[in-house]
Amino acid sequence: MAVFTIAHLYPDLLNLYGDRGNLLCLQQRMVWHGHDCRIKNIRLGDNLDYSSLDMIFMGGGSDREQGLVYQDLVKRSDSFMVAIEEGMPVLCICGAYQLLGSSYLDLDGHLMEGLKFFDFTTRATKNRLIGNVLIKACLGGQEMTVVGFENHGGRTYFEDNSLQPFGEVLRGYGNNGEDQKEGIKYHHLIGTYLHGPLLPKNPGVADFFLKTMAQRRGIEFGSRLDDDIELTAHEQMKNRLI
């Protein structure tokens, strides 16, 4: 039995819309896969040692809270990007996803800098994009549908056409409601507007992260988990949207 560690970045600032459900899901599934999983809370100013971590999770927050997080994160953005390049599993939801881009233009016209990991921009609009979403994604060579709920004022546009979205929008808005793109995927990082939360009723996405975490430690999982209940929830929403 191995012990895995997931860093939860700024849990007291970025934690909207049941974000902690993603962590509960990863933790429980890791236990069901026969291993242990710990959540390490990282707060403003805390030290981040990537070598001791198996995954990084960041959730959504309001504009003000994102500003505080940016100030803290920009100081260590270089090492964070190195970890991403080295294949660290990272899940960034909503506000945290927006932070990965180059900038965020808020409703009052203030331009907030992003971490500039990827060349995309976000601008806030008065009309929020709200509702259930269905997307088609491909993770670890496996095609799958992903369901969730989105609620974001920001619209995100890729400035670099080589960027890969997390998935293709089948129902709902995604990044901006225009180009059918939802989120971003890069190595083992996923940035997305989907909450709901994302992982519990998309066990395929949860296992993409868990398997990556295990493989990076040279561990293979045994038999598949019984996902009857999870898949029922997934199908319920999928059937409603199609």
Binding site: G21, L24, C25, Q28, G196, P200, K201, I229, E230, T232, A233, H234, E235, Q236, M237
Partner: peptide
Amino acid sequence: QRSGDMAVRIKYSG
């Protein structure tokens, strides 16, 4: 209407 989601939530309570 969201019986599945509720069941998932309760399942992950352990």
